[in-house]
């Protein structure tokens, strides 16, 4: 499978999930990610898998929870308002340490908002989203190739750490078509000796988030955070461009980072040395890496399709080394290249 093919972002996620060994997918329709359930409805029966359109997002994520407890690689997908509904199941799965992949192709909000791509769910994705002390591992791809590659990666990480792994894209990424090379099919899936398979020749397994006994929940949450510390140590992903000699650093993820790349070309053509720092894992956030990069530049401009969410993480981690400015477009609008260019020029 090394030849390049043209594929829509949402469909690339679906095919990559199947290549990663996902044979169970449960979801409820919502724009702008409807190509994912349509693709899975068509493809999963061809590979002996199960596609089920759930009665709601609450049901879909609960089906995911059940399938995950049964040991399967399982996925659901949605967009912002639907992801809000899924937070119940995400919190329960996090408490019960059940792996799953959840795709959020973000749209404009709050509420029903609109159906254009947006990045207004950063806080929800990286701060937990549901109730309680927990984290979801969040990966933000920047193009169709990465949507495919990181979907496979998401399944690996979810199983490795028994954590919910979220692919955080947006409506623009999901709807665009780009050439990609499909990832290799995963041949061997990890054994899950904790799964519910029937207590044959062993003690029963109990999978639950409830910890009523004195002190039991305290210990459980500390255990969860030991796991999170390992993830923060081992699984940070980020990307940089033109940072070697940069005076100014743009920080952006996903679709915003694509607009930044165009702005960098324009600014560099005018002799202004600007580069890009692109977090790929939003949790764990590349804290040390962005701090190191901040030491070498005069100023940071964070660019988001929101009123300013990731910029808080940039300020916390890089703010003591240089000024952090922000430019954002809410409501499903793309950042404008010329506005980035003018803002950076104002620093010179």
């Amino acid at each position: 499978m090394s030849e390049k093919i043209l594929m829509k972002g949402n469909e690339a996620i679906g095919e990559a999930a199947i290549l990663a060994g996902c044979r169970h997918y449960f979801a409820y329709p919502i724009t702008p990610q409807n190509e994912i359930p349509a693709y899975m409805a068509k493809r999963l029966p061809q590979v002996g898998g199960t596609f089920l359109q759930a009665e709601s997002e609450l049901a879909a994520v609960s089906m995911v929870m059940g399938a995950s407890a049964g040991g399967a690689r399982v996925m659901t997908s949605s967009s912002s308002p639907g992801i809000s509904l899924k937070q119940e199941g995400i919190s329960y799965m996090s408490g019960a340490q059940l792996p799953a992949v959840i795709v959020n192709m973000m749209r404009g909000g709050p509420g029903l908002g609109n159906i254009a791509g947006a990045q207004g769910d950063y806080f929800q994705a990286t701060r937990g989203g549901g109730n309680g002390d927990y984290h979801v591992l969040v990966i933000a791809p920047g193009n169709v190739q990465e949507l495919a590659d990181y979907t496979v990666k998401a399944f690996e990480l979810a199983d490795k750490y028994r954590i919910v792994c979220m692919i955080l894209g947006d409506g623009y990424l999901g709807q665009m078509s780009e050439p990609l090379i499909l990832p290799e099919a995963v041949k061997e899936l990890p054994a899950k000796d904790w799964a519910l398979t029937g207590a044959k020749g062993r003690d029963p397994h109990i999978i639950a988030s409830l910890r009523l006994a004195d002190g039991a929940l305290v210990g459980h949450v500390y255990d969860l955070y030991k796991n999170y510390a390992e993830i923060e140590k081992n699984e940070v992903i980020y990307d940089t461009q033109n940072l070697e000699d940069a005076d100014y650093m743009l920080v952006a993820y996903g679709t915003s980072s694509r607009v930044c790349k165009k702005a960098i070309r324009v600014l560099r053509a005018e002799g202004i040395k600007v580069g890009l720092f692109r977090p790929v894992t939003l949790w764990p956030f590349p804290k040390k890496e962005i701090a190191e990069a901040a030491k070498k530049v005069k100023k940071i401009l964070t660019v988001e399709m929101s009123m300013g969410q990731m910029v808080q993480d940039v300020q916390i981690n890089a703010g003591k080394y240089c000024d952090v400015d922000f430019y954002g477009e809410p409501g499903g609008m793309l950042p404008v290249v010329e506005k980035i260019v003018q803002r950076v020029k104002s620093y010179v």
Partner: peptide, 19 residues
Amino acid sequence: DGLEAAHGRAPAVSTGLKR
């Protein structure tokens, strides 16, 4: 073997597990 569902979601959790 036992699994705990969120409030009201037991039939959906059962669906996923049985599938």
